[in-house]
Design a protein around this nucleic acid. Structure first.
Length: 390
DNA sequence: GATCCACGGGAATACACGGATG
DNA sequence: CATCCGTGTATTCCCGTGGATC
């Protein structure tokens, strides 16, 4: 699939009248280039990382904040910009005595949910810092760590590594802290997580912290308007229409965007304009304690495929884990065994991605089976998943 | 031959329930 | 009546194996 094809798929043009121009712009799991209303926090991070442009390593920084407060949004946007900066416009302060580093600092963003082993940790960092390709197998963890250290000799430019989602769903914060010990001293770190610094292992090693507060109403309204203008055919989100979402989301941008997504979808099917009835319906339909979509979407491909099949099952097929396993296994294009599918379902439930509710006690005997219910907005999940897969 | 890790698969454990036992 | 037992399922836990790569 080439890039044009990808772009075409993202712009539904069934009849040229479609309200939604770009679903990714509405996605709660995607981040836009310029986060709305988070200037001061960005300034804070920039100030903290100033020294790396002078070839010095600032202490680890821990960025925390409640769900949907813009942590990932800020870090991804900032890192994207910083890595893309042409050499000459980088905020380097030249002094007459200092020789300019031969190459500039690298910025690496890691999601601890995907980078969840020591091997993967070192490999990902090394891979983004070094030109030659880094092996994915057949080489030991220690080898990669050594290569990271050797790099120092040739090119001492600092590396800034952000590790997102230190919330216990990926690698545990304590484990990450251990991995960090193995890094060269020229690596600067940003840990990102929900817990306040005092409640996470990363807080102990951090030399600086920054805590985000939930979005205020006006900020959330701005954010929704902004996303709507990017994703919808016309700037069709008025104040009145946005209000129910703003009220409901309680400062959580993820939830607000999920609601906007659902509302836009509904409006698209009905009239083609988005009004208050759509946002009210969306808010009504969504659950406040759902799992964040980016967490679902960051699961490994096979597990995602199982979930994708699962959300299409009718209630009868989901009446027990056993039944769901059969139905999913049958509809899956990949060739996972029954046992593995079943394990994936149980593990997803264990992770809180699915809910297990007691099912019908069978007239016969044995332990009562439970059926599984997705704990994430399935409509949004379906759309986003399908966008990425043919 | 070494290495990582996703799968597979089975053993161990938990639960439900009726009936037997103390 | 309380507890234990046996049977049948559901769920959890754990670890060996093999593919893919170097």
């Amino acid at each position: 699939m080439d890039i044009e094809e990808r772009i075409r798929r993202r712009r539904p043009q069934v009849d040229g009248e479609s309200l939604v121009r770009d679903y990714t712009a509405l996605s709660p799991a995607a981040h836009i280039e310029d986060p709305v209303d988070r200037g001061p926090a960005i300034e804070r991070l920039l100030t903290h990382f100033d020294p790396v442009f002078e070839d010095e390593t600032p202490p680890p920084l821990y960025l925390s904040g409640p769900p949907g407060s813009g942590k990932s949004a800020i870090v991804t946007a900032l890192f994207r910009k910083l890595s893309a900066l042409p050499e000459t416009t980088r905020p380097v302060v030249h002094t007459s005595t200092r020789v300019r580093p031969s190459s500039s600092p690298a910025f690496v963003y890691l999601d601890s949910r995907r980078v969840d082993s020591e091997f993967a940790f070192y490999r990902t960092i090394l891979d983004s810092v070094v030109e030659e390709s880094v092996p994915e197998r057949g080489v030991g963890t220690a080898t990669l760590r050594d290569r990271l250290h050797e790099r120092r000799g040739r090119d001492a430019s600092p590396v800034v590594v952000a590790i997102d989602h230190l919330d216990g769903h990926g690698a545990a914060a304590e484990t990450v802290v251990e991995w960090v010990d193995g890094l060269p001293a020229t690596v600067a770190l940003v840990g990102v997580g929900r817990s306040p610094p005092s409640e996470t292992a990363f807080g102990d090693v951090a030399g600086a912290t920054k805590r985000l507060s939930p979005y205020r109403r006006q900020q959330l309204a701005d954010l929704l308007t902004r996303r709507a203008s990017l994703g919808l055919r016309e700037a069709t989100l008025g104040h009145a229409a946005a209000e129910p979402i703003v009220e409901w989301a309680e400062g959580n941008a993820h939830d607000a965007l999920a609601a906007l997504f659902v509302a836009a979808d509904r409006a698209d099917r009905h009239r083609g304009t988005l009004d208050r009835s759509d946002t009210e319906a969306a808010v009504d339909r969504l659950s406040k304690d759902a799992v964040a979509l980016d967490r679902v979407l960051s699961l490994p491909a096979n597990r995602l495929a199982v979930l994708r099949a699962l959300v299409d099952l009718d209630p009868a097929e989901r009446s027990s884990v056993e039944a769901a396993t059969d139905a999913v296994t049958a509809s899956l294009s990949t060739d996972l065994s029954r046992g593995t599918v079943k394990r994936f379902i149980y593990e997803a439930a264990e992770d809180g991605i699915l809910d297990r509710v007691k099912g019908e006690p069978t007239p016969g005997i044995g332990r009562v089976p439970s059926r599984v219910e997705p704990r994430f907005p399935t409509a949004v999940f379906r759309r986003l998943y399908d966008l990425e897969h043919e």
